[in-house]
Amino acid sequence: MIDRAPHIWLWPGLAMTMALFGLGALSGCSEMSDSMTQAFADPAKYDLYDCKQLEPERKTLASRAAELQGLMAKAETGVAGSVVSELAYRNDYIAIRGQQKFAEEAWRRNKCHESPPAKTDTPIAPSANARPAPPSRSRGAVY
């Protein structure tokens, strides 16, 4: 009869090795290069965009990337935060970075320039602490 009991002690060690390997693979994802980010984005998405369309798109992508970086940093402060950060936000962040790269390439290819900030002709509202002007007391005024 074959005794299989001595081989049971291999399972916990094997499980621990696999878990460490998996965590190592996840942490390695954070060091992805720009060539890897391009794999998660459509290279032809911005080919037909003009400068008026690219400008708000670039701003939207930049704000989304900043938001995802903030969420990843916040997640990393918690228990098992790096794992949560990688699983929850890393794929979106990689995709956004790839889109940013292609949008920037289209921006340069089209020779676009930032539009100047729009001038507002609306009057400046008075401060909440400002007192109203006293009534004028001109000659001939009827009281």
Rank of each mutant, 00 (worst) to 15 (best):
D3W: 08
R4K: 08
A5L: 14
P6F: 11
H7K: 12
I8E: 15
W9K: 14
W9Y: 09
L10N: 14
L10Q: 15
L14Y: 09
M16T: 14
T17N: 03
M18G: 08
L20D: 08
F21R: 08
G22F: 11
L23W: 12
G24T: 04
A25V: 13
A25L: 10
L26K: 09
L26N: 09
S27N: 13
S27F: 15
M32Q: 11
S33A: 12
D34W: 04
D34C: 04
S35F: 08
M36S: 07
M36H: 08
T37I: 04
Q38K: 13
A39S: 12
F40H: 09
F40E: 06
A41R: 03
A44F: 06
K45W: 02
K45F: 09
Y46R: 03
Y46G: 02
D47M: 01
L48C: 02
Y49T: 01
D50Q: 05
K52C: 00
Q53I: 01
Q53H: 04
E55H: 07
E55S: 13
R58F: 03
T60N: 12
L61P: 06
A62N: 11
A62H: 10
A62F: 05
A65V: 13
E67D: 12
E67Q: 12
L68R: 01
Q69I: 00
L71Q: 14
L71A: 11
M72A: 12
A73T: 02
K74W: 07
K74S: 14
A75I: 00
A75D: 07
E76G: 08
E76R: 13
T77H: 13
A80C: 09
A80E: 06
A80W: 12
G81A: 06
G81D: 10
G81I: 01
V83N: 10
V83T: 12
V84W: 14
S85A: 15
S85W: 02
L87D: 10
A88M: 15
Y89N: 06
Y89I: 00
Y89Q: 04
N91M: 12
D92S: 15
I94S: 01
G98E: 01
G98F: 00
Q100W: 02
Q100P: 01
K101A: 05
K101T: 10
A103M: 04
E104D: 15
E105R: 07
R108Q: 15
K111C: 03
C112F: 01
C112D: 06
H113M: 10
H113D: 14
E114V: 11
E114R: 11
P116M: 05
P117N: 09
P117L: 10
P117A: 14
A118S: 11
A118I: 10
K119S: 05
K119L: 05
P123K: 10
I124V: 15
A125N: 04
P126N: 08
A128V: 11
N129C: 01
A130S: 11
R131I: 00
R131A: 14
P132W: 07
S136T: 05
S136R: 11
S136L: 08
S138Y: 07
S138L: 09
G140V: 04
G140K: 04
G140C: 03
A141H: 04
Y143K: 06
